[in-house]
């Protein structure tokens, strides 16, 4: 059986809020290492990969592999019934028909119990090759969100150009063009504003802004975001969570004919 207790319901609420417009039904794969999810959007252009390691939970117990097939719209409806500060416990049997959620208020003596009906989901699972990325950019997640939003008003696509010490986000649209450059920046006083660009070779790739704007819904999960790029491979956008857990998005590039 599965029993997983989260100190703060807000983590799961934010994860589901961040991915539910990209994927609708998905399996939460539970085993003794934690709870994982991998799902592609309908157009097979973007992929979500979540890992909540067992250390994220306290306690965490999962004796055998259990796949919880959940409709994310339903999941969000139930998670909205939890306060952000509530303690959240997920429970399921070994061959479950439902997943149970218990929300406990740490301040009041309130316990809320919900069940969500599970579904059989036949999901394609993709193997992601280990990649040494040519460029890794770490920047404030809010800054990345603002750039994607601003440029999406002008164009459908953005070119991300990484070179030594600088990364440039460039778009060309019907009404005009836009470009935002960021340089390596490190501050002891405001480390949350740091920008770090690690580069083994220059990279320039173009991506759909519609998907990037969607990924940025995860910004509330982490103050910083990591963009990993190599020429002619999907972009990796990673939000790191506590205890080595993560929410990752992959996006296939746009390439000239």
């Amino acid at each position: 059986m599965l029993e997983a207790r989260l100190e703060q319901a807000s983590i799961l609420k934010k994860v589901v809020d961040a991915i539910k417009d990209l994927v609708q039904d998905c399996n939460f794969d539970c085993n003794d290492s934690g709870i994982a999810l991998q799902a592609m959007d309908n157009s097979h252009v973007a992929l979500v990969s979540m890992m909540l390691k067992s250390d994220t939970f306290s306690p965490f117990r999962c004796d055998r592999n259990i796949a919880l097939g959940i409709n994310l719209n339903s999941f969000q409806k139930v998670l909205r019934c939890a306060q952000n500060e509530d303690i959240l416990t997920l429970k399921a049997d070994d061959s479950p028909d439902v997943v149970s959620l218990v929300f406990e208020s740490s301040e009041q003596d309130r316990i809320s119990e919900y069940d969500i009906k599970l579904m059989d989901i036949d999901q394609e699972h993709l193997g992601i090759p280990d990649t040494e990325y040519a460029a890794t950019i770490t920047m404030p997640s809010g800054e990345f969100q603002r750039i994607c939003r601003d440029l999406s008003a002008l164009s459908e696509s953005v070119a991300i150009e990484a070179e030594k010490n600088a990364v440039k986000f460039v778009c060309n649209g019907d009404i005009g063009n836009g470009a935002i450059s960021l340089r390596n920046h490190s501050s002891v006083e405001k480390p949350e504003q740091n920008v770090n660009i690690e580069l083994s070779e220059p990279v320039a790739l173009t991506f759909s802004l519609k998907y990037l704007v969607n990924f940025c819904k995860a910004s509330g999960l982490s103050g910083s975001v990591k963009l990993c790029l190599s020429n002619e491979v999907p972009l990796l956008v990673e939000y790191e969570l506590a205890s080595n857990s993560y929410l990752r998005f992959y996006l296939a590039p746009k390439i000239g004919d």
């Binding site: 193997g127 696509s157 000239g256």
Partner: peptide, 14 residues
Amino acid sequence: SLKQQKLGQYFYQS
């Protein structure tokens, strides 16, 4: 013009 690629071109079925 640019063509949107699919993930299946890069990732393998497992």
